[in-house]
């Protein structure tokens, strides 16, 4: 029975399909995490401005995204937009938009708290040396905020990778779904396949997130010296 289970992994196109599923997962994760980092930094900087209107809008945006489950957001982007406005996005595009909206909001809040944790004196001594606002952020504030940002941002990125499995509900077939398809197709002929497939998925997820953790540890170590 055992060997029958593992054989399923290598039968026909199964292995390739699982890897193609992983590719969808990685593509979605990489695009949305990178975009969220860039837009989240801008959003975080906007949030530290003491402009009432900006503060109000960003706050509402953040609360809205936080209150809405990601699944609801995915349904709104994929089905809701079609129904309300006749806009027909592909499942992948809808997923990219929702994940960027979500990632930007969460990342923005992380950047905001990292920025306000930098003492006021750092801003002032920089200003007294003649740095412009942009130079101040680029050379002094952001590099220091980044160091505090790495652990929570890593956490967010990992959460985003894991949450990509939700996109199956708007028709995007990623790794986990491919796994379920393979398991169900062999449900009657090789019930132990489930163990092997989930094991393979675990390793593939692990090896997708592991480089991130390694890179973060490496950066943290380098900055500690």
């Amino acid at each position: 029975m055992q060997d029958l289970g593992i054989r399923v992994l290598f039968e026909g196109e199964n292995g390739i399909r699982l890897l193609l599923g992983l590719l969808v997962t990685i593509k979605l994760s990489v695009i949305t995490i990178i975009a969220s980092c860039i837009l989240g930094t801008i959003m975080g900087m906007l949030m530290t401005l003491r402009h009432p209107a900006v503060h109000f809008i960003t706050r509402i945006y953040l609360e809205f995204i936080r209150i809405m489950p990601q699944l609801v957001l995915l349904f709104i982007a994929y089905f809701g937009l079609t129904r309300a406005a006749g806009i027909n996005l592909s499942g992948f595009t809808a997923a990219v938009i929702v994940f960027i909206l979500w990632g930007t909001a969460e990342m923005g809040d992380l950047v905001r708290s990292a920025l306000i944790s930098i003492p006021r004196n750092q801003y002032e001594s920089g200003a007294a040396l003649g740095f412009s606002k942009i130079q101040l952020y680029r050379f002094i504030i952001l590099p220091q905020a980044l160091r505090r940002l790495i652990p929570p941002a890593m956490n967010l990125a990992t959460r985003m990778i894991m949450t990509t499995s939700l996109v199956v509900l708007i028709g995007v077939v990623e790794m986990l779904k491919v796994g379920q398809q393979i398991i169900e197709a062999n449900r009657y002929t090789a019930p132990t396949a489930a163990l092997w497939i989930y094991g393979a998925i675990f390793f593939l997820y692990f090896f997708s997130c592991w480089p991130l953790t390694l890179a973060a540890n490496c950066l943290e170590k380098r900055w500690k010296e």
Binding site: P119, N121, Q122, E124, S125, G126, A128, I140, P143, Q144, R147, W223
Partner: peptide
Amino acid sequence: FQSYDLFNH
């Protein structure tokens, strides 16, 4: 300034 705020990084 009073607080010797060098750039820590």
